[in-house]
Amino acid sequence: MLEKTGIATREQIEKLLPSPGRRAEGPYAVMECFQKIPCNPCSTSCAFHAILPMDDINDIPSVTPDKCTGCGACAAVCPGLAIFIIDESKGGGTGTVTLPYEFRPLPGIGETVKAVNRAGEVVGDAVVTRVLPGKKTKTPLVTIEVPLSLVHEVRFIRCEAHQEEDPSVADTLREIPAPPQTADIGEQDDEVVICRCEGVTLREIRDLIREGYTTVDEIKRISRAGMGPCQARTCGPLIAAEIARMTGEPLGSVAPSAHRAPVKPLPIEFFLGGDTE
């Protein structure tokens, strides 16, 4: 599920594809943009008016496949790097995928790279057939040749250099057993630092709330939390949240402590240059 994993489903992808006839004719853009977000560079960048103008900037881009030439202009400008140019017309059982690739090093033409799917899994090898360095956009477009069966799967590549330094992280996660300790902040609250400046822990804060100090100011006065150099920038909201949690008060009714000048620590000598008017 896209909203949970970041991976679009097969059904979502299939809906984007042009008719089989159009697919056989030549390259076309696939816009893997499924969410209404305020963004329209794809439609304004298309010289062929193949992407419908957006009345509402939040519209999901809509491609007219017959107007699309597969030029890739939209893929180079898409801020979400969500546009891919697919070409299934070459014959010989292979097709090409043109994808945005903002990583270093850029692969060279003819280089064999790992073909990677939407989940980050290697699904085969691919040969780089074209590299547009994207001097202006700084979004290089890399075209790779893959078996036709993979043109709707492969969305990323991994070059040799990357493979060595980045083992499959998902695998690592599976290999590590659960730790023996049970995890519950409730029992470890003396290791949770709320006020970094004054070194006040969550346990101290919780003890004070239990004693009846239920405002940020009271806790500050007794514990010094928030009196340090950062003036509660980091801990203030955490203390308010803990008060709200323990008392059941809405967070909005837990008043923050007053803000005073200066907003950053300044030496006494700093002010000696001023003259009173």
Binding site: M227, P265, L266, F271, L272
Partner: peptide, 10 residues
């Protein structure tokens, strides 16, 4: 004390 930093006035 001239280099001591002021945190807050109230």
């Amino acid at each position: 004390l001239r280099t001591a930093k002021i945190l807050r006035q109230w």
